[in-house]
């Protein structure tokens, strides 16, 4: 969530099952849900919100491949071109001996790359402060949020009615 002075209308719920029910309802009413905030991952939420499976694994594969190539090509170049040396009468290009380091660097590059990508696309990082809708959302409350900034009075009333009818405990408007 970026800080762009958005007006967010959200309702607080006490249980993830109520949230899932409410989201099914929202889908039926064709309401455009801005976000759902929860203290832990809710299973079965992604399809309701239309969140597609993350493509992080593709990024991970690419970073891993870079690691594999760096290690394998690097060692090959060093031992055959830059400084050829015989170890124990074995050939310069002793591929089996390169396997452990190639594996380790693959894992290392994939992990570091993926974690950095994850924080970057989430807009997170050391010292980053993102607006928090409510203090209890990392504790025991769940929120369904609507973007009220561009919505008409009518729509806002519709959102409010929806939140009330689906069992929200508390309804708040917050500018972030």
């Amino acid at each position: 969530m970026e800080t762009t002075n958005k007006s967010i209308l959200f309702g607080l719920y006490n249980d993830e099952e109520i949230v899932l029910q409410a989201l099914k309802e929202a889908k039926g009413q064709h309401l455009d849900v801005y976000d759902v905030v929860s203290p832990f991952p809710i299973h079965g939420l992604d399809p309701l919100l239309g969140i597609e499976e993350s493509r992080l694994h593709i990024a991970g594969f690419c970073f891993g491949l870079v690691g594999t190539l760096t290690a394998f090509l690097g060692m090959s170049w060093i031992f055959t071109k830059d400084w050829p040396m015989i170890f124990g009468g074995k050939p310069y290009w002793s591929v089996p001996a390169f396997i452990p380091i190639t594996f380790e660097l693959t894992v290392l590059f994939a992990s570091i790359g993926m974690v950095i990508t994850y924080y970057a696309i989430n807009g997170m990082g050391p010292g980053v402060t993102n607006p928090v809708l409510h203090d209890r959302l990392t504790d025991d409350k769940f929120a369904i949020a609507f973007d009220a900034g561009n919505a008409s009075e009518d729509e806002i009333n519709k959102f409010k009615a929806f939140l009330e009818n689906t069992g929200a405990d508390e309804i708040q408007m917050k500018t972030i």
């Binding site: 809710i42 499976e53 993350s54 994850y118 997170m124």
Partner: peptide, 19 residues
């Protein structure tokens, strides 16, 4: 790190943990 608990973040979190 500016964690909010947004649904999209949790989705990515789970997929990152798994990989």
């Amino acid at each position: 790190f500016g964690w909010t608990g947004s649904a999209k973040h949790w989705s990515r979190f789970e997929s990152l943990s798994l990989i």
